[in-house]
Amino acid sequence: MFVWFHKLASPPFFYRFAQKLAPWLGWLSLLVILAGLYGGLWLAPPDYQQGDGFRIIYVHVPSAMLSMFAYMVMATAAAIGLIWRMKLAHAVSAAVAPLGASFTFLALITGSLWGKPMWGTYWVWDARLTSELILLFLYLGYIALNHAFEDRRTGDRASAILALVGVVNIPIIHYSVQWWNTLHQGQTIFFGPKSEMPPSMYIPLFIMILGFMLFFAAFSLKRLQVEVLQRENKSAWVRELVETT
């Protein structure tokens, strides 16, 4: 098992591994998301206050969760890259950043479209929304800084430091609804005696979260594969790969 993990850090081995695994994860995520959509858009009953408008939750919450999860993956990999000078770690950060930015954008847009009918406005400068917007800028800053230098290693290190500094924003997003008086609602309790949602509402949400996670796994793997290919384009194994395919 340990030997296998060690092998996975070798670029040619990882490349072939990702080539096989990514499509499976991608198709699996599609199936799970379709099941979640059926549950969320058709089977779940309308909310007693928000009617069918609440159904935005099934894309908003998974996007928002992934926006923070991807950032933690990016920052953890950046730390590993800075401390142990592992090249593959910086590639992980660079591969995850565009996906994280995408889901942050989706969390903001779907939240805004949800806010209009429920709060009467697309946007307010409250703590939750503002800190999520800062998250988007952190991702974009990371991507820009990563590409800003001639030397790949300088870009990796500079952007990794930005990623680490930005980690302070993650607990701020998470606890913002408790620390400040916000328009954004607090955390919903999904099950147990205090549940605010019946199972027919929260089960599709869990399925959607799982589907989005699988999507993230599939396409961060794919992006990492491309990142590795680009970074290693002059190495012997890439030459061999190109000749044989």
Binding site: L41, P46, G51, D52, G53, R55, I56, V59, H60, I109, T110, L113, W114, K116, P117
Partner: peptide, 12 residues
């Protein structure tokens, strides 16, 4: 969407 089509469908 029970009157919320203008918000739900663009989101999806």
């Amino acid at each position: 969407m029970g009157g919320y089509a203008a918000y739900v469908w663009p989101s999806y």
